[in-house]
Design a protein around this nucleic acid. Structure first.
Lengths: 162, 162, 162, 162
DNA sequence: TTTT
DNA sequence: TTTT
């Protein structure tokens, strides 16, 4: 609820594999995806182009997890906003391990209309059925949620500007 | 509630004057502040240092507006997260004018404890009483709100990592 | 070169019209685009869905301006990173007017490869020919430029992690 | 130099300990810091306030590394902008480990004037001597660098707006 | 109008 | 003026 400091991550990348959704004892959904970003540069010594791909583990909770699990696919390009979280866990030998993930609070699909006019027999056509959403807490039985910046009431007229 | 595209602004700057709070007919608070950011560079021709200050109009609604109106002061350094909104209005001659503002959805005071050891007889000491908050909609009688990134439930233990 | 405070804008939206490129006396290119972001919400009173579209003026300089002018088209979805700048100008009656723009420092095209394997007879296939770039200053005869986050040298091996 | 996708992190937090600077064989500086962000929330079941602190490993290269090593101290509040990078390394038993860090590309000190009028006998008074900077690549012998958004040339007059 |  |  309250934040001290700022912990914000913004990613745009493509899913490297299908999302994985599981359910907590509380019933809340948890979906994990892995998305890639990459950078290329020319090596100063060899003059050769180099490429480096970074993989990001992203986790969604609750309603966002359900949406992500349903609409995201391997290869989908997504915009993700979230926060860094490093989890501690034990490997088989009992020693501590740490994994850093992005806990998503917002997601938007960036691919256009489900594939150039063809196919998509599940009827999903891009932005029509929930391809964007705001997150909520992974707390037990938490509901989805989502307010914020948001529309001006009738007290503030807002027209097309320029 | 739903966003198509991303419209995000992040600012860190100082208030140029005292915040101004007013109330809508609905009872909701609206606070305006103006904050400065600046950049300096060396002019290529003259070799002289140049400075340019940018002023940003920021508007808060509802609960955030009350907090901003109460805790921010002229000179305060703040972190603001919000969205761009261009409002249309008419000047005295009836011609259209446009003003672009940042509708704040999150705010954090960045100054440390209440001001150089002196005064501050209201007992406010920096981070102790609400110096950070999340926004909600300027809709009539909207409540404050605030979900997001958020705490891990007991299903995910999270300790100090390194 | 030096920044006091933070002045950052992140946008993802579609161009409402073709980019407009012009050249400064110095020879530097300047490209303007207008991109839309929108939000929808259910009105509390009427229960009706509402939509509000926000239009953002974005300006590119120099190399980025050339790339934007060449590759962006009406309808293109783009990621933009930049800074807010409010310009003062005089209208025909000589009175002061202000226009707020986003001075782009980074741009990425988000549309996928010109349509699922078909067509695209101009040979442009998405990411292959410059659809992303970093900006530089609008200073006279400024060159393009662009370092930052960046690749790890051989001192830091970086492989695929998970 | 070129980015495919977006990999951006924005942090505001305090250093948990003194920065650690070392030098690569190439002569380039590398500074590591650890900064904390935290969030508090009320537990739904117990009604108790909970707090969770997240620690972020941040690494600076070259010129930024020198500045960070010189000016940042334990407790300093900083704004960091950077990119996520997961490094692979081997522990003593030879098994693979991964560490995720933020490679800083921009840094700003947010603490005000060196301590409320008192002390600071090194003469450092906040923003006067390099408390903000942009990063460059960790490549061998890389120089510092860094342009971007940036000042308008004389072709664009930019005055105080409102 | 801030801040350095 | 875009997009869904």
């Amino acid at each position: 609820m309250a934040q001290r400091g700022v912990n914000k991550v913004i990613l745009v990348g493509n899913l490297g594999q299908e999302p994985e959704t599981r359910y907590l004892p509380s019933g809340g959904a948890v979906t994990n995806i892995s998305i890639a970003t990459s950078e290329t540069w020319k090596d100063k010594n060899s003059g050769q182009m180099q490429e480096r791909t970074e993989w990001h583990r992203v986790v969604f909770f609750n309603r966002l997890a359900e949406i992500a699990g349903e609409y995201l696919k391997k290869g989908t390009k997504v915009y993700i906003e979230g926060a860094l979280r490093t989890r501690k866990w034990q490997d088989q030998s009992g020693s501590d391990r740490y994994t850093t993930e992005i806990v998503a609070s917002e997601m938007q699909m960036l691919d256009s209309r489900g594939g150039a006019g063809g196919g998509s027999d599940d009827g999903f056509s891009g932005y029509d059925q929930m391809p964007e959403a705001r997150g909520s807490a992974p707390a037990p039985a938490a509901s989805s949620s989502a307010p914020s910046p948001s529309p001006a009431g009738s007290d503030f007229e807002d027209d097309i500007p320029f």
